Simulated assay, not measured.
Amino acid sequence: MAAGSLVIVFLGPPGAGKGTQAARLADDLDLVKISTGDILRSHVARGTELGRQVGPIMERGELVPDELIIAIIREELAGMPEVRAIFDGFPRTTPQAEALDALLAELGAPVDVAVLLEVPEDELVRRLLRRAELEGRADDNEETIKRRLQVYREQTQPLVDYYAARGVLKRVDGLGDPGRIYCRIREVV
């Protein structure tokens, strides 16, 4: 893979600001932002076969099966002449991280940095309820938010250890002004 490849993984619970910060960083560094949540919501909205499969899963606040997510990621990366990507909302489990590493190894572009946005849970709930109100996101009601945070703690939190063990984890305080948070991210990337 060309020296210009760059792979960044954004980690953190729902509502931590991954999407906002990943979009800004993607623009600044000329990276493709790959948001599995956005891709899946698009399929649900369009009523595709994938959307019909994953819609009920998402409504329950559960994770979409790994094989479906990996297939989506493989398709997204397939057309890139060099892998320059930010992953927002993926991987969410250690098996997904291992599958991503295997896929990236095939492409000669390992994960360069995993940014962990850290935000207290009470702030996450407040943010997600506000986002639901502003964006009309049906998958962000209080019951589903609490379920998503529980799923994050149980299934996604181990990724912190996974990326720390590989020496690529960078912890970033996700509280405060989005501009300041972005400056903190730029310091570690």
Results as ranks from 00 to 15, higher is better:
55 G>W: 07
58 M>T: 03
101 D>I: 11
93 T>N: 04
114 A>G: 13
142 E>T: 01
69 I>G: 08
95 P>C: 08
109 A>F: 05
108 G>Q: 11
130 R>G: 09
142 E>S: 07
82 E>A: 11
135 E>F: 00
109 A>Q: 06
98 E>I: 12
113 V>L: 02
105 A>N: 01
80 M>G: 04
117 L>K: 12
63 L>V: 10
129 L>Y: 06
139 D>A: 06
127 R>S: 09
86 I>A: 10
135 E>L: 11
111 V>S: 07
118 E>V: 12
88 D>M: 06
149 L>C: 06
74 R>T: 14
74 R>A: 10
90 F>T: 14
65 P>N: 05
60 R>L: 05
129 L>S: 07
120 P>W: 09
153 R>N: 15
143 E>A: 15
77 L>D: 04
117 L>F: 14
141 N>V: 02
147 R>N: 05
153 R>K: 13
132 A>R: 07
104 L>V: 08
84 R>I: 05
126 R>M: 12
107 L>D: 00
77 L>G: 10
102 A>N: 13
98 E>V: 13
107 L>G: 04
134 L>S: 13
80 M>K: 07
112 D>R: 13
91 P>W: 12
94 T>K: 10
119 V>W: 13
113 V>N: 00
123 E>N: 03
78 A>H: 09
96 Q>H: 11
119 V>T: 07
129 L>V: 07
54 V>F: 14
55 G>Y: 13
87 F>K: 08
104 L>C: 01
83 V>M: 05
127 R>T: 08
113 V>F: 02
77 L>Q: 10
80 M>L: 15
70 I>D: 12
146 K>G: 01
82 E>L: 08
139 D>W: 03
61 G>R: 01
139 D>F: 01
97 A>F: 03
146 K>E: 12
